[in-house]
Design a protein around this nucleic acid. Structure first.
Lengths: 339, 339
DNA sequence: ACTTGGCACTCGGGAACACAGAGTGCTAGA
DNA sequence: TCTAGCACTCTGTGTTCCCGAGTGCCAAGT
């Protein structure tokens, strides 16, 4: 059905349209890409492609524009990820190397990605689930108030202020801290609930209410912050692009953590480190028709920590974008592994 | 020069223009606001107001539009802050009360403010400068690596991983932690540099390199994060509004922490808890011509911690916006004081 | 069987134009 | 000092017209 030349025509259409942002006609196509055939032939191919739903024309007698299905074919079979230039690689490296803590890594990453792709970048904070406890700290703040600080091996720090049911002296706090650390140090976060389940019973009866309070907050911290937090940057890059749908909807989606979460998450496949691309209407959320998402997991090996990606108009330069996303994900993974 | 009626006309123009977003003419003015004079008289007054630079006409024979100077006069003398409704107050209270930590307070605040004003909300993280040290923690991570955690009385937590110049056993770390806490606990952050200045000399000579390393990171943390961090929300609200300047510039400014910082900061007056309003061109940053900023400090009493505010088109409903900003600032201050 | 050149057809978008309506400034009179 | 009337000046909108890009189809060529 689709011979090689038709595919070449489709590729040419996508490339031209992406770079010019104008419907592309048969004549220009035959000229610019040396297809070695006449415009008329190209027209026939275009008719076939349109028949199959890969391209469409905005109105009669305008050029053709790729459909979502067309982009999909392009991404899957007609393009290959374009690696970054050496200069870009070095820039990434030095920029990310300067980060002082996890927050900083994430912030820098998202800005970097936005600048690199000239689109909106989205980065999910490393998930707690797969990380391990590095330290639990209890800091007395007042007679009946302590702060719980949970430090993970990914450098993430969670803190919560806890109101205690009774007055507890500092020495008891210190003791509890030691017990908690002995129990949890180095353990995976996922196993924490299990590990602490019988903790109250192993302690003197008078400590139990306090411990129960602390543990409930600890557990709450684990589930609540599970993988909630997402940041984005580069909203300014949206201003130029024109979406089929209003800019407002896109901005709204970006500020809805939940929506954003789902968008990144839905792209998950069985091989999380692979690049995933969702094009236009493949996207469930109606406010984001007209936008594509290129995402990938990052983290070490198969211990994927979280996901990052970019969001832009369907009319985006997929090879370049995919290259940038992949490269950034790799560098961030390195940085995280090293710290 | 400007008698009462002219001021009334100006007020009417501002109010009408804000609500309709269309240049307002003499006839409509005389009708809608019962000025008890004829359109012709209003026209004369308008001519005078234009002469003085308070209003202008986009083109001959269109209605009048307030200038920045006109808005300024309106804000200063013709309007009064509009208090929130009871329902709104309750909504604020319950929404903010659910916050679990400082991060959460800030996030909720900025979203709340954005939703309340239907504009872009900006909140600066509470400054470290005025806060006091509640606890310093040193957590051994590896042989030559510790994590420094600094907890302040505002509930803020700063962490840094430190590479030590030599191998240090855990007991020495514990000792150093005790020394640091003894030295700093409860002290204002501003006085930290002074307090630790002679610390190395008071310790055994073999500890000095390690202590010096730790202290340098500690001090760096204090100055670096000084008052750097700012978050915003409600960018989607920009989509509807039309700025004289491009939307892109506004979004860019919002993502530039430094610019944003300056904008909030510049509004500081001698009474930091007062509402400050910067209108259009009063604003230094060129990308934000056409936008106004309503801001105020928040925090307890005269111990102002940071600032928050909203950014919107010059054509905004100042009384309502000012009311919302003031109310939110008060509630946040309460919340922070209580925690 | 595929490719090519030719040709008639269709539409979108820009230019030219006219026109109604809103709003103004001015002047003369109450 | 206010008001009424009037001439004037715009913008925005609707209409018309035309050009050009691009198409689909057909018949001829390879």
């Amino acid at each position: 059905m689709l011979d090689d030349r038709k595919l070449a025509v489709l590729r040419a259409i996508v490339e031209d349209y992406v770079s010019t942002n104008e419907p592309v006609g048969s004549k220009a196509l035959a000229e610019r890409h040396n297809l070695k055939v006449s415009p008329a032939t190209v027209r026939n191919d275009m008719a076939a492609l349109e028949e199959e739903g890969y391209i469409t024309q905005p109105h009669t007698s305008a050029g053709r524009v790729p459909t979502d299905k067309g982009y999909r074919l392009f991404v899957d079979r007609l393009s290959q990820v374009k690696p970054l230039s050496g200069a870009e690689r070095r820039a990434i490296e030095t920029f990310l190397a300067g980060a002082v803590d996890l927050d900083d890594v994430v912030t820098r990453t998202v800005r970097l990605l936005a600048q690199l792709t000239r689109q909106v970048a989205v980065v999910q904070y490393p998930t707690l689930t797969r990380s391990t406890v590095r330290h639990v700290e209890l800091v007395p703040l007042a007679e009946r108030r302590v702060m719980l600080v949970l430090i993970t091996n990914t450098g993430r720090v969670e803190q919560r202020v806890i109101e205690l049911p009774e007055v507890v002296e500092d020495t008891r706090i210190a003791h509890l801290r030691a017990v908690l650390n002995a129990c949890l140090d180095g353990c995976g976060l996922a196993s924490v609930p299990e590990l602490v389940s019988d903790l109250p019973e192993r302690l003197p009866v008078e400590d139990r209410p306090v411990v129960a309070t602390i543990l409930s907050v600890l557990l709450e911290t684990l589930v609540e912050r599970h993988d909630e937090k997402i940041v984005f940057a580069g909203a300014a890059n949206l201003a130029g692009a024109d979406f089929s749908v209003g800019l407002r909807d896109v901005l709204e989606a970006l500020e809805e953590q939940v929506v954003l979460m789902r968008l990144l998450g839905e792209t998950t496949t069985d091989t999380p480190s692979a690049l995933t691309v969702r094009i236009g209407s493949e996207n469930a959320y109606t406010g984001l028709r007209g936008t594509s998402i290129v995402a990938t997991g990052y983290g070490q090996g198969d211990n994927q920590l979280a996901r990052l990606g970019v969001l832009g108009p369907t009319r985006m330069d997929y090879p370049v974008t995919m290259g940038a996303v992949r490269a950034v994900a790799r560098y961030v993974s390195q940085i995280l592994a090293a710290s």
